Computed example of a mutant assay.
Amino acid sequence: MFDMRPYRNNNDRRNNLSAYNPFREMDAFERNFFNDPFGSWFDHSALASFKTDIKDNGDSYTLEADLPGFDKKDIHLDVNGDTLTIHAERKAEQEEKDDKNNYVRCERSFGSYSRQFDLSSVDADHMKATYDNGVLKLEMPKKALPDSARHIEIE
C-alpha cells in the first residue's frame, strides 16, 4: 500500500515564508559561540561535577571522589537527614606587576562543585573521611538491619 500524502521537502525555500536574513544567522552563531564556545566537543556534565566511585564492601561502602587541586579546608561534608552533601570550592588568583606596580597580568578563577548522596542505608554517625593526593575517601559502615523475619500467631 502506498502513502498518498504529499511529500514536503523541508529544504524547499518556496515553503518558507520568511526571507533569508544573514544577520539572523550571524546573531544565532554569535549567541551559540559565546554561550557554548566548544560546542559538543566536551562532556559538560563532567565540568559541572566531580567523578566518584562507590564500592560495596559487604558491611560498609567506600566512596572515592576525585577532587584534584583542592585544599582539604575547601572541601565540606554535610549530613542532613539521610543526605550527604560533598561541596568543594576553589579560588585562585595570580598577579604579575611591572616595576611601576601596574598590572601586566591578573587572572582569577573560581569553581564550586557539589554532589549529594543518599545515606539511608549508612550509619552516618560512624563515617570516616580522608583526603590524600586529590582523592576524598569516605568509609561508610552500613546500618545494622533489624531482623525482618518474624512469626505472627493466628488468633
Rank of each mutant, 00 (worst) to 15 (best):
F50S: 04
G134H: 02
L84N: 06
A92C: 07
D147I: 01
P22C: 05
R90I: 05
N80M: 04
F34C: 02
E89V: 14
N10I: 10
E25N: 13
S60Q: 02
Y20V: 11
A88I: 00
F23T: 09
E93C: 02
G111L: 14
P37G: 01
V79R: 10
E93H: 15
S49E: 11
F110I: 07
Y7D: 04
K97N: 03
L17H: 13
I54R: 15
I86T: 06
D53V: 12
D125K: 15
K91M: 08
P68A: 04
A124Q: 07
G81E: 08
H76P: 01
Q116Y: 07
Y7M: 08
N11S: 12
F34D: 01
K55A: 13
R14Y: 09
F34M: 10
R8A: 12
V135R: 13
H126D: 06
K143P: 02
Y103C: 02
K91L: 12
M4N: 14
G39Y: 00
A129P: 04
K73D: 11
H76D: 10
S148W: 06
D125I: 01
L84T: 00
T130W: 07
M26R: 14
D125A: 15
F70W: 02
M127V: 06
L136E: 02
N133Y: 05
L77D: 04
D71E: 08
K91V: 08
I86V: 11
A129H: 07
L138C: 01
E25F: 15
P68G: 08
G58L: 03
S18N: 09
E155C: 04
F117A: 02
R150S: 10
G111S: 12
V104W: 04
E89W: 08
D98F: 02
L145K: 12
R115L: 11
G111Y: 07
R115A: 13
K51R: 12
D53L: 15
R115V: 04
G134Y: 07
D123Y: 03
A129E: 07
Y61Q: 05
I154T: 07
Y113G: 04
N10F: 13
S60K: 10
Y61N: 06
K100D: 09
S40K: 02
A124L: 03
R105Q: 11
N21A: 11
G39F: 00
D74Q: 11
F117D: 03
M127S: 06
R13W: 10
V104D: 08
G58K: 09
I152M: 10
A46E: 05
V79E: 03
F50G: 00
L77I: 13
H76E: 11
D132V: 08
E107K: 15
N16V: 13
L136N: 05
S49D: 03
T52S: 13
D43S: 01
R108Y: 14
D99E: 13
D147Y: 08
M1D: 10
R24D: 05
R105W: 09
L145N: 10
E25D: 12
S60V: 00
E95D: 12
H44R: 14
S114M: 11
D74G: 06
L119E: 02
